[in-house]
């Protein structure tokens, strides 16, 4: 019953658009929680500093790509004196092992955490098979 969600950790962004952005700012691999319920797969990724306009999610066949563009945190009139994190983009690619009903995908962004609910396609759901008594 438990299907596997494989992930492809891409260190280098695949398309040219993000490669260009990488020249300017770093690209981070955000940590993710993934769990599976009876009828959906839920993906939670941490992307602090990203507003809802900065999120870009695409599902191509079974490859789910999540991108986040955090707004610059420059404070005008202020000088950065201590630094432990930097502005950057987030990118993560997952390969789903199941068919997803792509019309019913729900994405919400709350407190810097992106939640994706990916409902399994009808055909992929486990069905109970009745034994016919002869």
């Amino acid at each position: 019953m438990s299907q596997e969600v494989r992930t492809v950790e891409q260190q280098t962004p695949s398309n040219r658009e993000s490669a260009q952005r990488m020249a300017l700012r770093p690209v981070f691999m955000p940590p993710a929680d993934i769990y599976e319920t009876k009828d959906s797969i839920v993906v939670l990724t941490e992307m602090p500093g990203v507003s809802s306009e900065g999120v870009d999610i695409s599902l191509e066949r079974r490859v789910l790509t999540i991108r986040g563009h955090s707004a610059s945190q420059d404070h005008s009139g202020y000088q950065r004196v201590y630094n432990e994190y930097t502005d950057g983009d987030y990118e993560r690619v997952f390969t789903l092992s199941e068919n997803i009903d792509r019309d019913r995908i729900e994405a919400t962004l709350k407190d810097g955490v992106l939640q994706l609910v990916l409902p399994k396609a009808e055909a992929a759901k486990a069905r109970k098979i009745e034994l016919k008594s002869s």
Binding site: S2, A32, Y35, T37, I41, V42, E46
Partner: peptide, 10 residues
């Protein structure tokens, strides 16, 4: 009754 695939968040 969820099955975890990945737990990376602390």
């Amino acid at each position: 009754n969820v099955s975890w695939q990945r737990r990376e968040r602390a």
